[in-house]
Each structure stands twice: as structure tokens, then as C-alpha cells.
Write a protein that binds this DNA or RNA. Structure first.
Lengths: 228, 228
DNA sequence: CCATACTGACTGATCGATCAGTCAGCTACG
DNA sequence: CGTAGCTGACTGATCGATCAGTCAGTATGG
């Protein structure tokens, strides 16, 4: 019930260290089994360290989960912010498609780095974003609300016909579409008998950009209809 | 691994029975804590039965989870199919908006029946749909792929400009948008300072229909651009 | 010499599952 | 009618396994 008082963890993790090994292992295990389903023992085993070392560095399983989330979402959101800022240097030439691209591309590029099946952090991101669990909601608020506001502001700037309210809906719905991409369940492949391969990320992303931009522009159109 | 040989469970559950009480309790507990996070003990306690009774009726925790999923998804998908079939009686007058409405409305109406915060089965649906876990993927395939094919077929019929491939993408992306609605994390409310209330289901649904139809129509437009 | 990094051995709690056994109700037979 | 035989529903007690977390103690490098 703490409320607003929450701080971002970002403690400089030296690559190649045991701590990094633990976080890598945690990413794989949490991605496969979820928070409750994962065991600290398995993470320790995969990282090649004693279980007690995890508690030594991170104190609790929850802290470990947060540290792992913080590391990757830092990477992702720095890349997103950089792409967005670069676009907004010349605001008049920015197209909606560019903003949507900046929203999704960093997520898939770092999210699929680890784990043998390319699932990695993306899977964790999906479950955190969709969870009603208090822990997950808190993480979403701390690590993803700031960048969300940046993108919502950008939408309002480059599409002046969009109300603030519709911009928030547009953002939420678009993130929902992105979840389809990141969950990587193989369902689209199954439903299409192979035509829609959700492991072909480039193809999928180009379809998503078309769909999402169409959705956002429809919200603008609707607003104009309401005014007239 | 098993493969195609999977059967739909649908064993006629008498309402008011102890079995129904167990399923109701399971729905609430699984929705709040997920599969791994939920305990059979807590479900038994909430249902007011001995823990052993759950194992007597369902044998394993997994079977219980499947039975619970089967019951609600049966309800939801029967309603969806009925709405869709009624629309397709007069295929020429059907608008895309009607199909999208048929896709989402039954889900929210039965999905929010149980559980104090109105979360109920919707939350379970979200996690099953986005999970890469084998158990969840199997459930999605058995209980949701058939209705998915129906909707994809309907999209192709009423929007002839849509290729089969883009219809599958359209379906997947739209389901992704629907997840935003069903997860009910309160994030849209937070990001909009109250303007976008994700507990106001009617408002949310009307925005979703606009967005989703815009997205689908954009995929049609893109196909035409490719041909020219 | 001392702090930091690290470990093996351990704890109490909780997990899903199993067990023998109770009990109400039904059937069959004399 | 009555009672023996049987069944399905259900329970309390308890199983071994596994969980997150603790702690005393060791190794190591500046």
C-alpha cells in the first residue's frame, strides 16, 4: 500500500560478473516459469553459483526480480527515448509511422537477446504489463510510465487532431498489439498454417506498424466526427 | 510431445454443486495468483471443502485449471459464435464494427461475472493467451483456436480486400488490443489522470472498436498498395 | 588484517498429492 | 420388513518434496 514513494533501482552491473550471471539466469528462468513458478534454486544452478549468493546480493526473490526488470527496461527505454528524441528534432517531418517504430523496435531488439528460443525478457515484459498483481503493477509504474508519457506527448504533438484522452487510449491499445509480438506463442503461425510467422520479427513489425497507425488515425477521425 | 491428440473437456456441471463451488473458488484464486502462485489449499478453503475433495474430483491441480478454463470459455465462445452467426445471416449488411463487437462483448460480459473487483476469468484469459507455457498454449489451442478460425473467416468474407494472411494478423493484433481491456490493470486511468477509466467498460469498448476497425482497414489499404 | 565475496548446511513453512477411513444412500436378497 | 453388501462423496492426517531464506564459517585480495 506504499503509494507513490518508490525508487528506481539502477546499480551499475559490471558485465561478466557473478551478479550479471545471476541476472541472466533469472531472466531465462523467470521468462519460462513466471515469478511464482520460478525457484531461486534453479536460477542459482543455471548461474553456476550457490543459492545463498543470490540472497547475499539481492536479499529476496522479489528484489532479484526487480533488479532483473530494472536492468533490461533501462536498456530498452533509453533506446526508445533516444529514437524518439531524435525524431522530435524536426517535429514537422515526423510521421506517425516513425513514432510507432521507435515504440516497438528497441523492445524486440533487446528483449530477444537472451534465452535459447529468443523469448527472453519480452515474455517477462508481457506478463508484467498485463498483470493485476501489485508487484507487477508497481514495476510497470516505476519503469514504464515515464516513457509512456513521453510517447503520449509525442502523439499529441505530431497528431494535433488527437485529444489527450484518445492519445492515452491509442498508447494503451498499441502496447496491447505489441504484446502479441512479444509473447511469441506461435499462435499466429498455427492459425495461418505458417503464413504468419511470429518468429519473423521484421515481417511482423511491418504489419504491426500498419495496423497500429490505422488504429490511431481512426481515433483522430472519430474525434473530428464528434466535434462536427 | 503430444501434438494434435487433445480433447475438449465439458462434463456438465450442476450449478450449486460442490464441484461448481470449487470451480468458482478456483477462478478467483487463479485469477489473483496465477497457476503456479495459487494453492489448492486456498481454493479448498474458499470453496468451503476439504482439500482432498479437490483431488478426488479433479485428480490434479492442472486438471482443475483446465476444467475451470473449459467451463467459462465454453460460455464465452458459444455467445461469440451465436452473435457472429446471427450477423452472417445477412452478410451484405454486416459492417466490420459489428464483427468486432461480437468478438469482444461476450468476453467482457461473462469474464467479469465473478470476483469482487470484477476481474474474474478475464485475467486468466489474458495470461493464458499471452503465455509461452506449454499448458497454456495447449488450452488456447483447444478452447480458442476454433472460434478464432470462425472470426478470421468472417473477416475475409465481409472485407474481400483482405488477404488471408492479413486477416490472421488482424485477428491476432485485435485480440492483443482486447487484452488491454481484460487485464484491467488501472494503468490507463493512471496515465490519463482519470480520463481513461478502464473500469468503464462501455466507454473503453467503444474506443476499442474504433481503433481495431481502423487497424484492420489499414491492412486492407496496405494490400491494395502492394498490388498497384 | 580486515572487508568483501562466497559457500554448505540448515530451518521452518508450505506445497501437491495420497491414504485409510467415515458416512449417507441405494440395491438385493431372505 | 430388515439387514448385508456396495458405492460415491467426502474428510483429517500425513506423506515426501520443495520452497525462500538464514547463518556460521571460509577464502581471497588489497
Amino acid at each position: 500500500m506504499g503509494g507513490a514513494a518508490a525508487e528506481v533501482i539502477e546499480p551499475e552491473i559490471p558485465a561478466g560478473s557473478r551478479i550479471a550471471a545471476i541476472l541472466d539466469a533469472a531472466e531465462i528462468v523467470f521468462a519460462r516459469s513466471g515469478f511464482a513458478g520460478a525457484s531461486v534454486r534453479e536460477i542459482a544452478e543455471r548461474a553456476g553459483v550457490a543459492q545463498a549468493l543470490i540472497h547475499y546480493h539481492f536479499k529476496t526473490k522479489e528484489n532479484l526480480f526487480e533488479a532483473m526488470t530494472a536492468r533490461r527496461s533501462g536498456e530498452i527505454n533509453n533506446a526508445r527515448a533516444a529514437m524518439l528524441d531524435e525524431l522530435l528534432v524536426n517535429p514537422d517531418t515526423v510521421e506517425l509511422e516513425h513514432v510507432v517504430e521507435a515504440l516497438f523496435r528497441p523492445t524486440i531488439e533487446v528483449g530477444h537477446s537472451l534465452a535459447e528460443d529468443g523469448g527472453g525478457f519480452s515474455r517477462i515484459l508481457v506478463s508484467v504489463a498485463n498483470s493485476s498483481d501489485e508487484r507487477d503493477k508497481r514495476l510497470a509504474e516505476i519503469y514504464y510510465d515515464p516513457i509512456a508519457h513521453k510517447f503520449i506527448d509525442a502523439l499529441c504533438r505530431i497528431e494535433p487532431g488527437l485529444t489527450r484522452k484518445d492519445a492515452v487510449w491509442a498508447y494503451m491499445f498499441s502496447i496491447g498489439v505489441g504484446m502479441t509480438m512479444m509473447a511469441r506463442t506461435g499462435r499466429s503461425t498455427r492459425l495461418s498454417a505458417g503464413e504468419c510467422d511470429d518468429s519473423d520479427i521484421e515481417d511482423m513489425l511491418s504489419e504491426i506498424v500498419i495496423y497500429v497507425c490505422g488504429g490511431i488515425r481512426a481515433l483522430i477521425g472519430n474525434q473530428e466526427r464528434n466535434i462536427q
